[in-house]
Write a protein that binds this DNA or RNA. Sequence first.
DNA 1: TGCCACCAGGAAAACTCTTTCCTCTCCGCT
DNA 2: AGCGGAGAGGAAAGAGTTTTCCTGGTGGCA
Lengths: 353, 353
Amino acid sequence: MARSGKGNGVGSGYVTLEQVAKHAGVSLATASRVINGSTRQVGEKLRQRVTASARELGYLANASAQTLARNTSSLVGLIVHDIADPYFSGIAAGVTRRAEGESLVVVLGTTGRAPQREVQMLATLRAHRARAVVLVGSRTIDEEGTRRLAEEIRIFTRQGGRVACVSQEGLPADTVVPDNRNGAAALARHLVEQGHRRFAILAGPADLRTARDRLDGFHSALSSAGVELAHHNVVHGAFTRDGGYESTRRLMAAGTDATCLFAVNDVMATGAMAALRDLGLRVPQDLSVAGFDDIPTLRDLTPALTTVRLPLERMGEEAARLALDGETPEEPRVVPVGGEVVVRESTAPPTRS
Amino acid sequence: MARSGKGNGVGSGYVTLEQVAKHAGVSLATASRVINGSTRQVGEKLRQRVTASARELGYLANASAQTLARNTSSLVGLIVHDIADPYFSGIAAGVTRRAEGESLVVVLGTTGRAPQREVQMLATLRAHRARAVVLVGSRTIDEEGTRRLAEEIRIFTRQGGRVACVSQEGLPADTVVPDNRNGAAALARHLVEQGHRRFAILAGPADLRTARDRLDGFHSALSSAGVELAHHNVVHGAFTRDGGYESTRRLMAAGTDATCLFAVNDVMATGAMAALRDLGLRVPQDLSVAGFDDIPTLRDLTPALTTVRLPLERMGEEAARLALDGETPEEPRVVPVGGEVVVRESTAPPTRS
DNA sequence: TGCCACCAGGAAAACTCTTTCCTCTCCGCT
DNA sequence: AGCGGAGAGGAAAGAGTTTTCCTGGTGGCA
């Protein structure tokens, strides 16, 4: 009377391949071969019977069982600091697009900028036999943390997984690297050309590689142009909108003589513009402001932000490609991504001389 | 000489529980009990030995094997339309926070607004024995699509999974519903109070539930206040920044007499403001603009957008909570989320009468 | 016609865990 | 001393696939 648990297929539990095989009157092996299309041929007649049975019973393969048997899964890891940050969500969109295009499943991990979370996530993904991982976000210059992450990456790779990074040179994995130095340098040259001589910089966290590279690139381009960068005009702070706001308040409270403010990313620049507005200063008349990244959502700020465009989505796609293509190169590959200076209204020739 | 594949543990392959057990000189059962802490007690001495061996060999449990044996995994699905859209990434941040807090793993699926992708993803997650799924994003009014999705949800639930939705009434699952109607209505009342009588609305896609509700709420509040809404002042278009831009161009080209423009979400409002700027119109002097959502990244637009605030991250968390708590209520639960009108500079009393 | 190779199909092992059920020991009670 | 019960440990049976290896049949070739 009662449902006998097994056998009646539709209704409650799961339909297994065995049930399909039985229903089609073939062996488990044959059913398996038909359904996942192995190298082995199966006769037309049986093939028909199996697919018909599978459809009829509503068969859905148990992914864990497949992973266990094949020792590889269709999971791709994606590790970011904060998915609500448009920088990361832009890259994430690229990664997902590519992964889903190859009918893989994306596992999203967020670290909240805690380095040990990256290691943790990597272990979790390894436990799931994830096929590949894309690791996004700059390393700090913390040697120990990097060493541990590198070690975990090596383990992951050794066990057949692939890893690609975005913006993380120095790890044993393929990497997509935005050219932070040259992008910032090009921006600096443009601003100098525009007539600026005294700059202030919202430099972000002192230990963050990306922030440092942008600062360095900007700085050295200034030096080459014979422009000094006063020490007190470089302020550090969080890599966020509020960090930019704070840093700007501090900068202005200390009384800067700069005519142009460079924030090492767009969200900080946004905070800076808000702070300046709150202080009653006009951009660009009183102070020019430039950012970095060209976050799409921020393109509609007024005045529109002069910045360095990074193709975020493409970077994500590219990283996924690196992590998913067949190759396992000897040396980690590096795919450089150029930044393009985009001049908009937030910068203008200085009026104060 | 060559690595014997099994036995030497460290080096190449994976370390299995069996190896740990052997190394510790206990049975597989005991090792399992120690490592995952089952209900059964294990003697102190053996416990020590097992943990020591596990650490020494670097044991990491095979997640698929566990899923297979337990018939439940630590995966939580998260289905959104577009992760680069700040609306979705905000919610995603909430979901991830909660899921990771319970040491679960988030699987991210994006649909690109294709309804059948939701059904597909749900099946994939079922194949992975995902414990729960959070489904974000409004349904269209397409009956057939909804029916299919509902059916897939029922299957998922019947097999022990839990589903929660954000913003999707009418599905057989717990739901977090932003109060679109009342939010829009409250906004409308505020604008009328401010003196506006002639409105234009960027209504988004005609078949999208969320868009419709906001339109309806706004509209009926106007009616209650005795304000007419001219038919030609309601334009439909894509639910995106560019959709907002386009719609606004069309609207203005047709020559509207409205003094206030309501875009049914913030990203459309952003497009609208850009379009108005391109047309040489000032906001709010020539035309007031209001949005909906209060996307954090867009708070720094100038003029700052008057809008209805939704607590996106909290909504995500709440949805994850619904999907993950123990209960399996008879009736789908509905958690309403209020929207709060936030008045900023993009709206002002009309100057043209 | 006899032999070999090839091919489709099936039985069963393997993948790595969890969990049930059984055994054995030790303790406390009568 | 004998018995029952509790509790710790182990053997083994799953969980649902894939894949190896074996079998039997058929076709081609000498």
